[in-house]
Structure formats: C-alpha cells, structure tokens
Design a protein around this nucleic acid. Structure first.
Lengths: 258, 258
DNA sequence: CGCACTTTTGACTGTGTTCAAGTCCTGTGG
DNA sequence: CCACAGGACTTGAACACAGTCAAAAGTGCG
C-alpha cells in the first residue's frame, strides 16, 4: 500500500464517460477521489475483512474474478473484471453482502473509501447516476450469464464468453480479435458452470471448428462474425460506447449479427 | 390507464425504508412521484414500446416475471417481482436494455416517468442511494440464481427458490410458511432452467420428502428449518429489514441456519 | 532435474432432456 | 346437469450432454 501518482483514475473516468455524459467538473470530481494503491500477486484474493467492505476497488491492471462458493465447495465465478472496472462499486450500497474477489493475474488496484465516493455522488447527481449505471451494466452481464448458463449448450456458452471478453477488451467499439486471458481451464469451467475436463473438450471443439483458439493464456478469434453468430452474441448489454463514440458504426455492426 | 388515488406509493416507500434510512422529507418526495396506474390481465406482458423504456413500473398487486428469450425460443425467467418492487427501476440508467416483464397473475402497476424519478434522485442523494440499493438487491438475487442454477442439483434449486419467495413474502422478518405463488410448472421450470417434466418430478420429490408442497398456485412449507437447510438458504442477499427492524432476531435465526 | 500444476484423452456414469401418452381440472356451452 | 375442450399436471421409457474417475502427457518453476 502506498500513496498514488497523479491521475490514476483517468481510466475509470474514461469508462464512466463512455456510457454516461459527464461535464468537465464532474470528471474532475471523480479524478480527485482519494485512493490507496495495492498490488496483489496472482492467485490471491483481494483482502476484505470478513465480507464487509468500506472501500471500492478500482482495477488498474490485471485480471480479477468475482466468485461465490457453495456448501460442497463448488466455485462459481460471477464476473471477470478488467482494468477500468471498479470491481465492487456495488459494495457502496451493499457493504455487508460483498462477494470475494480473486486476482487471476498479478493485479494493481486502487482502494477508494466509500465515504469519498458517497460525497462525490451526493454533490454531483450525474456522477451518482454514472456509478449506478456502472453497477447496472455489471448486473446486466450477470443476467446474461444466467441466461447463457441455464439455456445454452457448453460450446455456445464458451463462445459467448470469448465474445464478451473480446468486446470489453476491444477499443473504439471494435472487439479485440487477439487478447490475453490468463485463466486456467479450471477457472474457465468455474465461470461457465462446467468441469475442467469438459471445458477442455469444448475448447478443443471450438479450435477444431476454426472458431477460436485459447492456449497459454491467450485467445485468438479466427473469425469474429462466425464466432459471434455461433454464440448468438449481441453486445448491447455491455453498453459500450453509447456516448462520444468515435466509431458508432462498430456497434451497428455487432448488433446486426443478431 | 387512469389517475391514481392518494399515496399509492406508500408500499414502495416502506420497501425502500426497510433497507435504506430515509428522512420524513425524503419519504414525502418519493410518495409525491407522479404515476399512472395500469392493469394487466394474467399471462400478458407489461407493454413496452420496443425494448426502450421511459418509465419504471411499480407493482401494486400481482406477480410479475422478468424474462429473456434465446434464439431457439427457450425462455429464462430472471426475476419474480412482488408487490412493493419496482420491477425495472434499473431502466432509469439503462433505458435501451430492458428485459420484458410478464404478468403471471392479474397485475396492477404504476408507471413512474424516468424524469420524475431522476429529479427526486438528484434533489435527495439519500433517495438516489435507496434506488441504487433497490437495484443492487435485485442484482444480488440474480447473482444468487446464477450460482444456484450453475452449481446446485434441481431439487435444491427448487427448494432455494421456495425459500427465497417465502422470505420475500414474509412479514416482520419471518418467512411466509404458506403463500400464493401462482406459477405453472412450466414457468417454474423456466425460472430454474429445468423442463416442465423435470420440474414436476422435483416437486413430487420435495413433497415426498416432506419439505414443501406446491399445488394449485399455493406453496406450503412443512418445516422451514429443514427446507432452508436443505436448500442452503441464507437470506442475507435479500437485505431484508436491515433498518427499523421490529424483530431483528428473525434475521439472526435465518442466518444461523448456514 | 524433479516436483507440482495444467492440459489432454479415455471409459463409464448419471442427472436431466426428449418424446410420448394419459390423467386431472376447470371453464363453457348444449 | 352433463359433454366437451384445452390447459396443466403426471408418468414412463430412451437418450444425451456433461460429470466422474483415472491416467498420461505437457509445462513451468525452484
């Protein structure tokens, strides 16, 4: 833990501004939020005391998973968080019901005290709404995972997750067709509700079908259109680039697929 | 559609106040929100124009389900909404990404324009936070469904849903041990990710195990403690009665189960 | 170089699906 | 009051997707 260099929250502001219109002053208010940096090695939880939280965690770098455990030890991942996300912004309104966060790769995060966030949200309604929307997009993603896990066969679920990560990691409204995604097959299975064995078989099938390859922590999408069609992927729920989009046609393209 | 009698939103205020501390003035502000009543017969969607929404829907009476459809026509319910819920409060921050709502029984709802809600939220930060929390509790429920559908066998999932509805429909922190839940087995299956056939078999099993009976649109819980233990149910995620609780021991009891 | 973890593959099993038929229940019209 | 129709519910039998168990091959790190 150490005090942080100038403007570390710029990426967060960019993310908020991508889905919510914010004035210069409002951006400044978010940028000036106090924060403390923490570095978490791979395969460790970001520490909470118990399951009660007093600060939110902004992801600067790394890959983080939110998860839940069941009685019999089964693990279900409920989100992947990438740089620019505040992994547990919802903890502001549900401090006693936070799910644990696990650093999949080495992660740098900024802890932002709830009171500071609440102060900014109270002073700037548009910022409060942006925070709320940030949470709502996360909720929409969870709902999509619910529908997919419940209704899609394993291979389509896998393809959909790959599309989702590609869309989120992409820039300028275009999905990333090649990106780092350093999850093990077991973690991937925990996200998709599959065993590691079946995850392996599904990845093999996607590879053989020429849709996507996932190996050594990297994803290669062979043909975005084909993969997205196979997965039934439509990026609307991610609310990417609805404001100030420099390439609005990209969304149209993705939407047209389905 | 007709203009509405005095204080129809009192139940909503009560709900908000149950999880968020609100002053008299803040309660008044919510109560004075403009609204238009609508009555929807059973087995009809609450109508939206397209999937874009300009108002939120407060449920006065009836049972409403939120759902998503997949390409191949499969249906997944993603929430049950009971009186006191605003079924689509999140539509305020994601007006273009709303999921359809289906009236399972005859339903009376109040349409509240987004601008009016936004105005009150901007004027009263505590109200904004209460709205945000209302959405966050819904999101936590969806996350719980995700974990259950992905990780629990069918019977435990069913038991968990029965516990959840009992807890939500209960009063004074105590779960309802007997309540109306007029879903068909097909709808129940759509909520749990099961076929109607298997739903029927699971209900039969729960009946034979003496855990709960569901018949004719009514649920009877034979032994709450046994059922909750069987389902691994813990009501924390529902954030019931965290403020102004007249019987705080009730939560302790429920939490003690797990 | 050796140990631990991850990935890969095979064979068998089981939970839940699919297909099919039959029963119950309720509302409606003769 | 009864016949009928259409849902909803119930049950059976066969099947399939994914899980379980087991073992081997690959990978990376100390």
């Amino acid at each position: 833990m150490r005090e942080v260099r100038a403007r570390p929250l710029q990426v967060f502001v960019d993310r908020l501004a991508s889905h919510s219109p914010l004035s210069q002053e409002e951006c400044e208010a978010v940028l000036s939020l106090p924060s403390t940096a923490m570095k978490v090695p791979a395969r460790r939880d970001l520490g909470f005391t118990g399951n009660t939280s007093h600060s939110a965690h902004f992801i600067v770098s790394g890959l983080v998973a939110r998860y839940s455990l069941t009685r019999n030890g089964a693990r279900q991942l409920t989100a992947f968080h990438i740089p620019g996300d505040v992994a547990d912004l919802y903890s502001l309104v549900r401090p006693g019901g936070v799910a644990p966060l696990h650093a999949i790769t080495e992660t740098t995060a900024l802890c932002i005290p709830h009171e500071a966030i609440r102060r900014v949200a109270a002073a700037y309604p548009a910022v409060a709404e942006a925070f709320w929307r940030h949470c709502a997009i996360d909720a929409a993603t969870v709902m999509k995972w619910l529908v997919n896990i419940s209704q899609l066969p394993a291979a389509e679920r896998m393809a959909h997750l790959i599309c989702e990560m590609a869309a989120r990691l992409g820039t300028e409204g275009l999905p990333a067709i090649s990106f780092d995604f350093a999850v093990t097959q077991e973690q991937l299975g925990d996200a998709l509700g599959l065993t590691a064995v079946h995850t392996n078989r599904v990845l093999k099938a996607l590879r053989n079908e020429g849709l996507a390859t996932m190996r050594g922590g990297k994803v290669e999408i062979h043909n975005w259109t084909t993969l997205a069609a196979y997965a039934g992927f439509n990026d609307t729920y991610l609310a990417l680039e609805t404001h100030n989009s420099s390439s609005p046609h990209a969304n149209d393209l993705a939407n047209a697929i389905r």
